[in-house]
Design a binder for these strands. Sequence first.
DNA 1: ACACCTCGAGTTCT
DNA 2: CTCGAGGTGT
Length: 680
Amino acid sequence: MQKVTTGAEDRISELIERIGYHNDRYHVHDDPEIPDAEFDELVRELRELETANPELIRPDSPTQTVGADPSTLFAPVEHRMPMMSLDNAFDREELNAWADRARRRLAAEDLGDLVCELKFDGLAVSLRYVNRKLEQAATRGNGRVGEDITANILTISSIPHRLPGNAPDVLEVRGEVYMPLSAFEELNAEQDRAGKARYANPRNTAAGSLRQKDPTITATRGLSIWCYSVGEVQGGPALDTHSATLELLDTLGLPVNPETATVGSLDKAWEFVVRSESKRHGLPYEIDGAVIKVNRLDLQEELGATSRAPRWAVAYKLPPEEKTTKLLDIHVSIGGKGKATPFAALEPVFVGGSTVAMATLHNEDQVREKDVRPGDTVVVRKAGDVIPEVLGPVLADRPDGLPVWEFPEVCPCPHQQPLTRQEGDAAHYCRFPRCPEQLRGWIEHFAARNALDIEHLGEQRVRLFIDLGFISDVGDIYSLPYDRIRELEGFGELSVANLAAAIEASKQQSLARLLVGLNIRHLGDTTCELLAEAFGSLERIMGASVEELAEVDGIGPIIAESVYEFFLSEVNQEIIQKLPKELLEASSSDAEAEVEALPQTLEGMTIVVTGGVEGYTRDGVGAAIKARGGKAPGSVSSKTTALVVGENPGASKLEKAEKLGIPILDEAQFQRLIETGELP
DNA sequence: ACACCTCGAGTTCT
DNA sequence: CTCGAGGTGT
């Protein structure tokens, strides 16, 4: 196809030159020749041309670079005023509870007018305008520190680069960047044409678009923004209500969502919530709830904030989306210890932001209790926003005579050995020691991050090596036939070297990790550490009696028996023979030496963490707590000293901690706690 | 014997 | 995240 772009190409060059000139007059000489509106018009024309002809976008185009130094992209930015998150309410009752709490705190005991807004499903950002010029844009991050995304934000056409003369001297605007459904569909149509994978949902795609290293890509994604509050403000008109703030933003040319209402009572606010729920699917963008704010700023100030959220606002979260789909069949998967778990094979359905084709059914009793049968139409949703869950069948749609599902009698692997369920157990097990499914699970477990941490040995390769007969137990990992692997398709010199190096490195792992890798029933990370610490070497653990094992604090008769049995087995002894000497001689002392060096600030404390904490991986937080002498269990109980709330916290832990009156710490308070051992 | 902690395992999709 | 099950203390 002949390109018909000469006209556009020339015009783009001309625009780039003129914009560059006026930009220079404005910023460098502070002596603009043309009015702002005319300047913006030039930029808009350029942007339109570029949108129509993405292949003509030049890296030096001002739409990509105006005012932004690309080298600062994603650099940390400390917010002058923290970007707080909101407390959630899931029903009317919780909404009432919020209002009651707030009222009790006020001298006047009246919240006054309430502003109702939609809650947009996008990414919270902060735009900082200094002297009416957009100087810096940042993500929310953890609320205190975000990432610089100025270069990318400048490519969003609905965000003004400059504000009119009546704007405050310093204005921090908070808003939600989102991808309109039309832009999302257009993008996916393009992906289809290019034969590429579709994007899953607008929210994640918007996030991905803002995270581009190359702003030219962000520019083509059709992102937009809704502005809904301010941070730091200097100069400008005095404001005394939130609705006046929104009006100001609107008059400054910042996009403010029109679906906003100021109401006089909680009843009216609830009506807004109910309406937003029914409107949800008619909107050209996605929402995940509604937000209710106290309108008067003096009352907002009086109410103040907790460590993580203001008391003057609450987010109503829409219930998770439910969809119906066909239950095609119920299969069984075999875990690394032989556990047989039934799961639903579903007709793929888009629910809660992603396509779901499988969902666990846990065990036989769960299937029976839900009474779901292959051929049923079932209701599906995302539990906790992530894990797909089958709620139950739509009985009205059940075909006549649909048979009840029976737990399969044999393992799905070619050996077809029986699956058995013992009295008192909820699970079925495949007890065939040479079951290839179990072997695959064991090898993967051995290579996993919390065990011997062997990179480049993932599920695909494990399957392949088992099929080819290279591996028939974990011991074989250390005598892989590299000559033959080199000849396999998809294995180059480099990938073989990487794999070999990763396996070599695993020989240095600690005793506890080796124990984890051995895949002994009832032993996980924690119990393995207990054993490693108590006995110091594999040899001593192997030589211990059941009674000696059970003497360890935290090890009871059942686990002791399980460990004893494992090492009694001849098959397992042979496997251990195959392991490299370095591993077998691994002791628990090396790792501890480092740990002891840290001040034991958390001695005697039990710290539970929910959500991600800045600067740590999920496991890393627990390790940091333990390294300082504290305990870090996965759930809140009456023994918990404090709950640390990070990014995207889980509701259940938070709720329980509040009910039990356990102190709740934000990330800054957690940092202080770790360093000094002091609770706020 | 019971209640209450903890721990472990399996799990979805990008 | 949720469920099931082992360990510990009363």
